[in-house]
């Protein structure tokens, strides 16, 4: 994978190039926007890493001037409050990371960006050997199917997509029950406890946590 680092701090640029290089992503460096424009005309890159404040202009404005066929842009800047992130994403950046950022995360985001266009949605979601087939709604742990109902599988899907993060009750209720369908306060908890029993019976180390007042979260118990 080949990327272009657009960054006016040469020391940071070189260190970043080495860091992502160690993670299998090659990079070239442009220290001004003008240089970056020239390089974009002559070479193809799968992603751009852009700093906002460049000596010859504002990175956000520069993105707008690029043709629609430009590679995806990861903004990597020291301006990282919500206001800045919104400004950056509004300007057309595809992703935003605040400095200082972990090189592992930079590399992961770059790979995700390069994958994004044209890739078909994976027909399955998985986390730590727990697999949900999105077409058949079948749930497998280490290849063995678990007897999990449709409602429980629907409940599991958003949790499995974002393990370790909280899914709100509202989001889950909207997913599991139609608008007209009345939802009793305990309905969601009943689905969650059925799912817990099935996962436990199947020997999966995955746990469904209730975050009272907010929602549910999937974690994996350490062996």
């Amino acid at each position: 994978m080949r990327t272009l680092i657009i960054e006016d701090n040469p020391k940071f640029a070189v260190l970043l190039k080495d860091a992502i290089g160690r993670r299998g992503i090659s990079a070239e460096i442009a220290t001004t926007l003008a240089e970056a424009s020239t390089m974009l005309e002559t070479c193809t890159y799968e992603a751009l890493i852009l700093d906002l404040g460049m000596p010859d202009g504002d990175g956000a404005e520069w993105i707008k001037s690029l043709p629609a066929t430009r590679p995806p842009v990861l903004m990597l800047t020291a301006r990282s409050t919500l206001q800045d992130r919104v400004l950056g994403l509004d300007a057309g950046a595809d992703d935003y990371l605040g400095k200082p950022a972990d090189p592992d995360e930079i590399a992961a985001r770059l790979r995700a960006l390069a994958r994004r266009p044209g890739t078909r949605q994976e027909p399955r979601v998985e986390h730590e050997d727990l697999v949900l087939d999105l077409n058949s709604r079948e749930v497998l742990y280490q290849g063995t199917p678990l007897s999990i109902g449709i409602k429980e599988a629907d409940f599991l899907e958003p949790l499995l997509k974002r393990p370790g993060r909280v899914c709100s009750r509202k989001q889950l209720e909207d997913r599991l029950y139609g608008l007209a369908e009345p939802v009793t306060p305990n309905a969601l908890e009943a689905v969650a406890s059925r799912l817990r029993r099935r996962l436990q019976a199947g020997g999966a180390p995955h746990r469904i946590h209730t975050v009272r007042g907010v929602g549910y979260m999937l974690t994996v118990e350490a062996p």
């Binding site: 080495d18 020291a78 990282s80």
Partner: peptide
């Protein structure tokens, strides 16, 4: 505050990458 935050974070970002080695 904006400038100071920016100036303080740049060396931190460099340190983070140096520690990567």
């Amino acid at each position: 505050a904006q400038d100071a935050a920016h100036e303080l974070k740049t060396p931190l970002a460099i340190m983070e990458l140096e520690l990567d080695q």
